[in-house]
């Protein structure tokens, strides 16, 4: 039930946004975030939960950098 997927905002119209999720265009509520077209976002139950601060690849590289530092 807590599954969320990443997508990219194409355009915003009031409280809703058109979002590209793995090449499918879907509409979602964006009242929970301040976002702009082009932003990568995390989507859950027809609603944007958060704007992604970095992409997934970058995050994984940083993860291993950080883990290395704790040893």
């Amino acid at each position: 039930m807590c599954v969320a997927v990443p997508g990219k905002i194409i355009e915003i119209n009031g409280n809703t946004a058109k979002i590209n999720v793995m090449n499918n265009i879907t509409e979602a509520d964006i009242r929970l975030v301040s976002a702009k077209p082009g932003d990568y976002v995390l989507l859950h139950a027809g609603c944007v939960l958060e704007v992604m601060k970095k992409d997934a690849a970058e995050e994984l590289i940083e993860l291993f950098q950080e883990l290395g530092e704790t040893v």
């Binding site: 009242r31 929970l32 975030v33 995390l42 939960l49 958060e50 992604m52 601060k53 970095k54 992409d55 997934a56 970058e58 995050e59 940083e62 993860l63 950080e66």
Partner: peptide, 15 residues
């Protein structure tokens, strides 16, 4: 926090 692309210390304040 190993998921910083979407998880912050404070979380989503608006929500």
């Amino acid at each position: 926090n190993l998921y910083p692309s979407v998880v912050s210390v404070e979380g989503n304040k608006k929500a």
